[in-house]
Amino acid sequence: MNEIVIHTVYIKLDQFLKLANCVSTGGMAKALLQEGIVFVNGEPEERRGRKLYHGDKVTVTDNGEFTVVAPQA
């Protein structure tokens, strides 16, 4: 499980996919989501604007599993 640190209250799923190096552009994020291989907390997700908060888990088939974490104090 890879931890991805965010410095805000939430991050949108398409931005998260770029931060996690699953895609390099927003268009690629949209295409990836339409393939039905992105899961948030175990549920399939297709919305680019889905807000992710600390503790959410994102799974991308063939790319890995990621956890949204807050920066260490």
Score class of each variant (00 low, 15 high):
Asp14Glu: 15
Gly64Ser: 04
Leu17Trp: 03
Val69Ser: 10
Arg47Met: 08
Ile6Tyr: 08
Gly27Thr: 00
Arg48Lys: 11
Thr67Asp: 12
Pro44Cys: 01
Met1Phe: 05
His7Met: 00
Gly64Ile: 06
Gly49Arg: 06
Glu45Ile: 02
Gly36Lys: 01
Ala29Arg: 09
Leu19Cys: 10
Glu65Val: 11
Glu35Cys: 04
Tyr10Gly: 12
Gln34Leu: 14
Glu3Ser: 15
Thr8Lys: 09
Glu46Met: 07
Tyr53Lys: 13
Gly64Arg: 06
Asn63His: 09
Glu46Ala: 03
Asp56Gly: 10
Glu3Asn: 15
Arg48Val: 07
Thr8Ile: 00
Ala20Tyr: 04
Arg47Thr: 01
Asn41Phe: 09
Asn41Gln: 13
Gly55Ala: 13
Met1Asn: 10
Tyr10Ser: 15
Arg47Val: 03
Ile4Lys: 13
Gly36His: 08
Ala31Phe: 06
Thr8Asn: 07
Glu35Phe: 08
Val38His: 00
Gly36Met: 06
Glu65Phe: 08
Thr61Phe: 06
Thr25Val: 07
Val5Gly: 03
Gly36Thr: 05
Asn2Phe: 11
Gly42Glu: 10
Gly26His: 11
Ile6His: 05
Arg48Gly: 07
Gly49Ser: 14
Thr67Val: 15
Asn63Val: 00
Gly26Lys: 01
Met1Leu: 05
Asp56Asn: 11
Lys51Gly: 12
Glu65Arg: 13
Gln34Cys: 02
Phe16Cys: 04
Gln15Cys: 09
His54Gly: 15
Ile11Asn: 03
Pro44Lys: 04
Val5Phe: 11
Leu52Tyr: 13
Tyr10Phe: 14
Ala73Ser: 15
Leu32Gln: 04
Lys18Ile: 14
Met1Ser: 11
Phe66Trp: 07
Asp62Gly: 10
